[in-house]
Design a protein around this nucleic acid. Structure first.
Length: 426
RNA sequence: GGAGAGAUGCCAGAGUGGUCGAUUGGGGCGGUCUCGAAAACCGUUGUGCGCUUGCGUACCCAGGGUUCGAAUCCCUGUCUCUCCGCCA
């Protein structure tokens, strides 16, 4: 959400920012709508001022026992004009709000301009890409051969894009989540939260999923939305608040199920666990002062990368081009883990600085000590990490010629000391 | 699911149709006093929007309605609490 005052004063910069996202200029139309709104408001308020004054006179006249019917008649006449002005104001206001709600955030200056992911820029790589003296398999072959990853049963139970893990793989998922949460809470200063996984319209609006992206979400019959990421409930914790500056930065983490309809992804990644309707994820959310968000994004990206380093999984980090960024982001780093079975890097984390975009929608502000004016907080979110995809990465990178899987050292304590996952006997 | 009570400023808590953006207490902030602190005393203390030294306007859970005038009356919804039922 944008500050209309800012657009009024910086129409060129606004349109230029939209242009980087491949969108047409909007400033002139928005400013015209805003002008209509303000004029109607001025008229409505002027009439209201008069009515308030006259109503006060009526009260005083009646208190003295005088006849007030003449004034009452006068006030009654102003009703129509005021109703008209108010209707015009609220109509313009509605149009303006609708238009502003649908606009994505503006990219920062240092974000590479480009149309899609091919324009993303690699900023660093970590770890050596492993070499196998056999043809490495994809995770679904490995998992199915182990007898611990069952897509058939999952599709019987639910449908496509679900999986049923069992035995050591089910435990591996749990181990990964515990490991990640421990690192983020004990070493990186995040506060663990266990939030609602169903939220209301207002909450989905606050982080920007609504009004535009309802199709990507699951909705219950009584109006709840299933969260597509814990970013939604975690960020909205501060919605509506005026925070003391000593309260910032605020860092939250949560492990939750994430639910996505994948409406726009038909036919993509249909095989395996890469793209599911339901997956678990450890999410990080930071709420910071305006001037601290850029540094916080670097910090948060580091917190996500640290998980891969501990698991000794090779990755690269890219900065997304303007055309590939999400709706609310001003700058985003994607972390891509190496998948030997696919012979490719695949996204495993996405860390974004949303600036004050979500804060304006949520009305989340703070006050600097000793100052009177209020500022909007900045919000950031990042995966630390997507657990399902991390499980895939472990399987593919730690696979052995016989189809068994070594368990990374960092995870062994979480697996009851187990160091290898082998095929189960049926 | 049934019955009842409630929602007011940072917190507690008044206010049931007229100068109420709202009594009072606590907290916070500023000051007096003090070497300093505590105590005491004095002052101050919400947010949005519009025009702008300042003024206007809106907001007492949300949305409608009645009225010249609504925190106060009416309707709908949401949430909280109590009791009963059910239940992980």
């Amino acid at each position: 959400m944008f500050d209309m005052k800012w657009i009024r004063e910086n129409p060129t910069a606004f349109d230029a920012g939209l242009g980087k996202r491949g969108l047409a200029p909007q400033a002139a139309a928005l400013i015209a709508l805003d002008e209509t709104r303000r004029q109607a408001q001025g008229r409505a308020q002027q009439i209201q001022t008069e009515r308030n004054a006259l109503s006060k006179q009526i009260g005083m006249a009646k208190a003295k026992g005088e006849d007030a019917s003449a004034i009452i008649a006068r006030v009654s006449q102003s009703k129509t004009a005021q109703a008209e002005a108010e209707a015009e104001q609220s109509e313009a206001d509605g149009h303006l709000h609708k238009a502003l709600s649908a606009l994505p955030n503006l990219p920062f200056e240092d974000v590479p301009v480009g149309n899609d992911e091919s324009d993303n820029v690699e900023v660093r790589t970590w770890g050596a890409i492993p070499h196998f003296d056999f043809a490495p398999k994809e995770h679904f072959d490995l998992g199915e051969n182990l007898g611990l990853m069952d897509f058939e049963t999952a599709s019987k139970l639910a449908g496509a894009r679900f999986v049923l893990l069992s035995g050591a793989l089910a435990r591996l998922e749990r181990a990964l989540g515990n490991f990640m949460l421990n690192v983020q809470t004990e070493e990186h200063g995040y506060t663990e939260v266990n939030p609602p996984a169903l939220v209301n319209d207002t909450t989905m609006y606050g982080t920007g999923q609504l009004p535009k992206f309802g199709d990507d979400l699951f909705k219950t019959e009584d109006g709840y939305w299933l969260i597509p990421t814990a970013e939604v409930p975690l960020t909205n914790i501060v919605a509506g608040h005026i925070l003391d500056d000593t309260y910032l930065p605020r860092r939250y983490t949560a492990m939750t199920w994430c639910f996505r309809s994948e409406a726009g992804a038909a036919g993509r990644d249909t095989r395996g666990m890469i793209r599911q309707h339901q997956f678990s994820k450890v999410e990080m959310v930071s709420v910071t002062k305006a001037e601290e968000s850029s540094a916080e994004l670097e910090r948060m990206t580091g917190c996500a990368e640290e998980i891969l380093k501990r698991l000794e999984l090779p990755f690269r980090t890219v900065v997304l081009a303007t055309g590939d960024m999400g709706f609310g982001a001003r700058k985003t780093y994607d972390i891509e883990v190496w998948l030997p079975g696919q012979n490719a890097y695949r996204e495993i984390s996405s860390c974004s600085n949303c600036g004050d975009f979500q804060a304006r929608r949520m009305k989340a502000r703070y006050r600097e000590k000793g100052e009177t004016d209020l500022k909007f907080v900045h919000t950031l979110n990042g995966s630390g990490l997507a657990i399902g995809r991390t499980l895939i990465a472990v399987l593919e990178n730690y696979q052995q010629a016989d189809g068994s899987i070594h368990i990374p050292k960092a995870l062994q304590p979480y697996m009851g000391g187990l160091d290898v996952i082998a095929a189960v006997e049926n």
